[in-house]
Write a protein that binds this DNA or RNA. Structure first.
Length: 715
RNA sequence: GCGCUCUUAGCUCAGUUGGUUAGAGCGUUCGCUUCACACGCGAAAGGUCGGAGGUUCGAAUCCUCCAGAGCGCACCA
């Protein structure tokens, strides 16, 4: 027996050494597994593409959970003999990364993005991204993730850029990407448009003002934003509203706070007659609903009164004022004119930008969109339908299943996807202009073409992730072997922005699904159930936890009892419990190795020992089944329970008298039994606690492969 | 407004899709320097499974209603 077993298990020195040995062996790469003869060249493939963490800093416990779950499936399948591929990568995360760096520059140097300039800002962001990347990679390795680093990808590298330009061009040619003047979600703080999914609604108290445009205007209207009324072109009422029926179709000229308005009264069923006064002032340029109503009644869209900096552009006393100041001015004016009839306190959910916190200002802007309700040429179906179908048919299975309903519900409400952003970091829109001419996809050779200034929503490139990482648009061997991928594992919070987009993009580009199974994990919360955040200071850093208790312990603490789709709580105490388990395993190794020195593994078992072994065989079946059915939270618990409370507490204890004074045959049988049980237990436990199991197994006489990582799964 | 989830031991959660006395971890109490391990061992206490009905031979599990908690989407003039 190696003398290392005489001291308690030390995870810190062991884990880094073991990872280096695995990496050096090359066995994270399935091609190398085949070359070294540990995997059959014709074995079925199993693949996962890692959800690429944003290069915005360091990994948190949610990432650690993601790595643990995916590594468990990967290691299990690898031991099962599959050609198993897990591709690592990182996400440039456009807006998120740029805003982190911009904030830092503002803080350190007091400068904004335009003081720095496009080129210099990009340089700074790239330096920051590179540093984050290195930190993240080393964190992933610390967690024991058996990722094939030879295939590492970045959403903004050259290969992925080629994929992005290619898909953009194809979608444009298919008529599914268009440039249009639409109301977009403008973030005045970040100075960019954002998509519907990047909005966070915040409930806030607001005042509902009820007033008339002028003394002789016949209808009072209600609004929470009086300043926008300077952009009104009409008033809408419900067609069945008896109070206003006689006014429908009439037109009025008024002067509202120095601004001349021409107001037409229209009837539209969109209006809720029970809200406010039942009459809506229409501001088509600054409200999506109003824009739509104006469309139906042929009213002008062009009355833009607020600019990108949330300042008023009308002449008169409001000119150049911020919207918040303008609101006070309008209210004062209404009061002084005797036009304000009532003020009500109401609750309102305010749209804010998730990255900057800026209050969204709906503005009409010329932007690029993906059209989701138009038939895809050659498919006879819309993108929306193509997103629904594979989940409906079961080709894609979502775990837990109830999220499928949430998914359907979201798709039904889906509108065209605004993909252009006014930021600098990211894939630049691959469109070039020269006068009226436009070229899409590849930069024209001739002089005089100017590229679109905008960049693409980061989810456009991550939507291609399952196939761009496998080499598309090249027709690679990897692509035919590993796509569609087997499992996509991520947090339920990005079901919509990411998973739905991947299905859309893959259906469009490859006529197939990106993955067969979606495993959604919940949020990792602190011991009190609070979200981990910088401001609360309750973040647990996976690196600290791994350093203190070992990555194995951290993985077990994250996985045991953690059902998919449900938020979990984690505390240092829980991790500590599994550190003790690592040590327990270590001591079992010591006992088994000490007591089986001259064991002949081929010797036959006694009747009693055959029974004990068969219980373990049942465990193997159950655990295998649990993993296959995505119940790894249960598989982990079962192995833990068997190892500690059956193997250690019971079997080892009753073996002591046998070794002390049993007959020779009983002793031989028992030695074989313990060695067999422990060897199989290490194999079962390896996907969950890869380091300590590998370290022990290297000293086992049953060792039949270079690493436990590529040893056979027991049956 | 539409939809989803949760409510099980003091705490955090399981309960493999209806089947014998409902489980785990942590915590609590008591006893152990037992030669693998005090990062340990042995024992014990603790739950009418949110409430009310229903289906069934049988319900924590399925159905209906009610109460409480959380979340998503939409609206928000």
């Amino acid at each position: 027996m190696h003398e290392k077993f005489l001291k308690p298990y030390d995870s810190t020195t062991t884990e880094s050494r073991i990872y280096a040995e695995w990496e050096k062996s090359g066995l994270f790469n399935p091609n190398e597994c085949v070359r070294q003869g540990v995997t059959n060249p014709n074995a079925p493939a199993y693949s996962i593409v890692l959800p690429p963490p944003n290069v915005t800093g360091r990994l948190h416990m949610g990432h650690a959970l993601m790595l643990a779950i995916e590594d468990i499936f990967i290691r299990y399948k690898r031991m099962k003999g599959f050609r198993t591929l897990w591709i690592p990568g990182t996400d440039h995360a456009a807006i998120a990364t740029q805003s982190v760096v911009e904030k830092q520059i503002k803080k350190d140097e007091g400068k904004g993005r335009h003081d720095i300039g496009r080129e210099e800002l990009l340089k700074r962001i790239e330096a920051f991204a590179a540093e984050s990347h290195d930190t993240i990679v080393s964190q992933m390795k610390t967690m024991g993730a058996s990722l094939d680093w030879s295939r590492e990808a970045f959403t903004l590298d050259e290969a992925r850029s080629r994929a992005v330009r290619n898909v953009f061009k194809q979608m444009y040619q298919a008529g599914l990407i268009y440039r249009g003047l639409r109301i977009v979600n403008w973030d005045p703080k970040g100075q960019t448009t954002i998509s519907d999914d990047e909005i966070v609604y915040e409930e806030r108290p607001a005042t509902l003002y009820i007033f008339r445009y002028s003394k002789d205007f016949p209808i009072s209207i209600a609004t929470t934003r009086p300043e926008t009324k300077a952009g009104d072109v009409g008033v809408a009422v419900h067609p069945d509203d008896a109070r206003y029926k006689s006014f429908v179709g009439k037109e009025y000229d008024v002067v509202f706070c120095d601004v001349p308005l021409h107001i037409k009264i229209v009837a539209d069923k969109e209006v809720d007659p029970t809200f406010g006064t039942g009459a809506v002032g229409l501001t088509p340029a600054h409200s999506q609903t109003d824009w739509d109503i104006a469309d139906r009644h042929e009213l002008s869209h062009e009355s833009i009164i607020i600019n990108e900096y949330a300042k008023m552009t009308v002449a008169g006393r409001l000119e150049g004022k911020k919207t918040t100041e303008a609101r006070d001015i309008v209210i004062d004016w209404l009061k002084s004119e005797g036009l304000l009839e009532k003020e009500e306190n109401i609750k309102q959910s305010v749209a804010t930008a998730e990255r900057t916190g800026g209050i969204i200002e709906p503005l009409p802007k010329l932007q690029w969109f993906v059209e989701v309700n138009k038939k895809v040429p050659g498919r006879g179906k819309t993108l929306k339908e193509l997103m629904l179908e594979p989940v409906r048919s079961g080709a894609i299975k979502i775990i837990p299943e109830y999220f499928e309903k949430t998914y359907f519900h979201w798709i039904e409400n889906l509108r065209d996807w605004c993909i252009s952003r006014q930021i600098w970091y990211g894939h630049r829109v691959p469109v070039w202009y020269k006068g009226e001419d436009i070229v899409v996809g590849i930069e024209p050779k001739e002089e005089g073409w100017i590229q679109d200034e905008d960049s693409l929503d980061t989810w456009f490139s991550s939507g291609l992730w399952t196939f761009s990482t496998l080499g598309w648009p090249e027709e690679t061997k990897d692509l035919t072997t590993y796509h569609p991928t087997d499992l996509l594992e991520t947090g339920y919070d990005i079901l919509f922005p990411w998973i739905a987009r991947m299905i859309l993009m893959t259906e469009f580009t490859l006529n197939t699904i990106p993955f067969k199974n979606v495993y959604l994990h919940g949020l990792v919360r602190d011991a009190q159930g609070r979200k981990m955040s910088k401001s609360l200071g309750n973040n647990l850093d996976p690196l600290d936890i791994a350093a203190k208790f070992g990555a194995d312990a951290a993985r077990m603490a994250l996985v045991v009892g953690n059902t998919p789709g449900t938020d979990m709580r984690i505390s240092e105490d829980k991790v500590k419990g599994y550190k003790h388990f690592s040590n327990k395993l270590w001591n079992i190794a010591r006992f088994v190795l000490e007591n089986t020195k001259d064991v002949k593994i081929s010797a036959s078992l006694s009747k009693e020992d055959i029974d004990i072994l068969s219980v373990h065989t049942d465990l193997i079946k159950e655990v295998t089944n649990d993993i296959e059915e995505f119940r790894i939270y249960m598989a982990a618990e079962k192995i833990y329970h068997y190892t500690w409370h059956e193997l250690a507490d019971h079997i080892l204890e009753v073996s002591k008298p046998i070794f002390a004074n049993g007959d020779a045959a009983a002793q031989t049988s028992r030695k074989v039994l313990l060695m067999t049980l422990f060897d199989r237990t290490l194999r079962l436990l390896h996907p969950f606690m890869p380091f300590v199991t590998e370290e022990i197994w290297q000293s086992m006489p049953t060792k039949d492969a270079s690493f436990l990582m590529v040893a056979k799964w027991p049956s």
